[in-house]
Every structure is written in C-alpha cells, then in structure tokens.
Simulated assay, not measured.
Amino acid sequence: MKVIVTGSLGNISKPLTQELVKKGHQVMVISSKAERQKNIEALGAKAAIGTMEDAGFLSATFKGADVVYVMESLAPDAFFDPNVDAIAAITEIGKNYKQAIEQSGVKRVVHLSSIGAHTDQGNGLITFHYNVENILSQLPADVSIKFMRPVGFYTVMFSFIQVIKQQGAIIQNYGGDEKEPWVSPLDIAAVIAEEIEKPFDGREVRYIASDEMSPNEVAKLLGEAIGKPDLKWLVIPDEQFLTSLIANKMNPQTAKGFVELNAARVSGVMYEDYFRHKPILGKVKLKDFAAEFAAEYYKKV
C-alpha cells in the first residue's frame, strides 16, 4: 500500500515509518525541513517537504494514497510564544487535513488523537484533540477513520529533569498513589502500523497504553534510575503551578491549559472514557523507559 506519514521523523513517525517499510509498504513522509530528506530516504521512504499549515500541499501529497496517518504538532517553542494560541493553531491544522482528505479522495485515515478527546469540558489543552476529532468526523461517510487515543507519553517525563536538578523533586499540581496509564511512543507506532493493515470500517476509536503506575511509584522508579532513591513527587496547588509555568516564560494561556489538563487527571475527567474501553497494555514498560530517562538526565549535566 501507499501510506502517507505526517510528523517527519518524530518519536512516533520514525519507528512507524521503519515498521511500514519493513512490511513492504510504499511510504512517503511529510516533513517541514528539507534537511530531513536524506534521513527519511535512508529509512527506505520518500520525502515530501511542506507544512501542515498548507492545505494545498497536503492535498497534492495525499492524492493516490491508500492510507494517510495524520497528526498535529506545533514548533517546539510554540508553547512559549506569547503570540500563539495553541488550541486555535492545532484546530486549524485539523481543518487543513479535512480539506486535503476531501480534495485528494483518500478513503482511509488514521488520526493521532489523545486520551481526553472524548470531551471538551475540563480537559485543558486536550480540547484541541476533541476539536480535530470532530472536524475529521465531518468528512463524508465513505471516509473511514481510526482515532488513536494514546495516554500520557513517557517522554513527557523528560520535562521533569530540570526541576529535579534545581529543586530535588518532581513538582506538579497532581500526584499521589492512584495508578494512571502511560505509553511509549514505540508502542503507539506499533499499534498504528497494525491498524493501517487491518480493515477500515466507518469511525473507530482505540486507546493505547503501555503501563500503569502512580506518580509516587514513578518518582521511586526514576529516582532509583538516576541514583536518587529518595526522589519525591510533590504536589502543589494549581495557582502555584500556574505561576511557576508562567515564570518560566510559558504562554499564560497555554500554561492555564496545562494546569487544567493535570487537574483533569485528579478529577477523573481525563480517564473516564479510557477505563470504559481499557486496552491491552503494550510491551515497553516504565522500567524500560527509566534507563532512557537516566541517560537523558546525565546527558544534560
């Protein structure tokens, strides 16, 4: 099959591309950076250089594809740009995908969404995933869509490193002993590759998770991995957490969205639909990720 992969060579798109090429599919990877072309071709795929913000480019690139995998992302510093409305910007990308899918005639779509996308109430930044799911759901009925809803990425924990070094603890506005699901990008890529080869029929939702562990258990595991067995996960009030994010130059609107996202973990809003459709856990466990976290922790010393 001819498969279009968005997301360049990111944490999901790179292993997904490798898996699809290995399975014999003709893969084209969309990247906004021309310098990535050689690396994409080295994987056995073709490169299409352009952006998610260009609906015309997307439409031309999607044309003739059997399946398109679409995901939304912003520039790495977008959350710290005072001029960027993250929810609005990603919602616009969703509109571009809808237009491109309609104009190109693609009938099979896999969309990377997120846990929490089942609602637009009390889920903070996740609202943009709810928005995009609903935009894509407006496509004609003969377009089959698989909405992938992974839980919290292991890689988000890399953001803990600076605070651990500065304050000797993980500090968030949620925590405790309640287990919550986490996922490896490798397991996400494996599930997407699997779904691309399975039959498409209407609109489907699949949750993706690798492991379940409480914040306190995470702190213990990561602490042992970095040689700090007494590492604690400390919980601070929402307002204090918001103030700290803004003090670190995060866009205030985005910071508020992060605070609300974490609060949704505490209230249960984030996980209510996940637990109704709980998936089989993937292969890559938090213990496996802890070694990767430790390597990153000491690399930044």
Rank of each mutant, 00 (worst) to 15 (best):
N251G: 10
F258P: 00
G175V: 01
N173P: 11
A48K: 05
P237N: 13
K107C: 06
G50K: 02
L136C: 05
A100N: 08
L112F: 13
A100V: 07
N173Y: 05
R203G: 09
A193C: 08
A34N: 06
R36L: 12
Q172W: 12
V132L: 03
F258E: 01
K23W: 03
L222D: 07
G7H: 01
Q240D: 15
K165D: 09
E194K: 12
P215R: 02
L242F: 13
D142C: 05
G24H: 11
P150M: 05
G227Q: 13
V110A: 10
G56W: 09
E19N: 14
D211T: 00
E224Q: 12
T119C: 09
P76A: 14
Q37W: 00
V68D: 01
K300C: 02
P181W: 00
N83S: 15
K283E: 12
Q166I: 07
N11P: 04
I196Y: 05
I30T: 13
I101V: 11
A48P: 04
M52H: 08
F80G: 12
E178W: 06
D66K: 07
A294W: 08
W182N: 00
K283H: 11
R265I: 07
N131I: 01
I115K: 02
K300R: 11
K23E: 14
V110Y: 04
E195Q: 14
F57N: 05
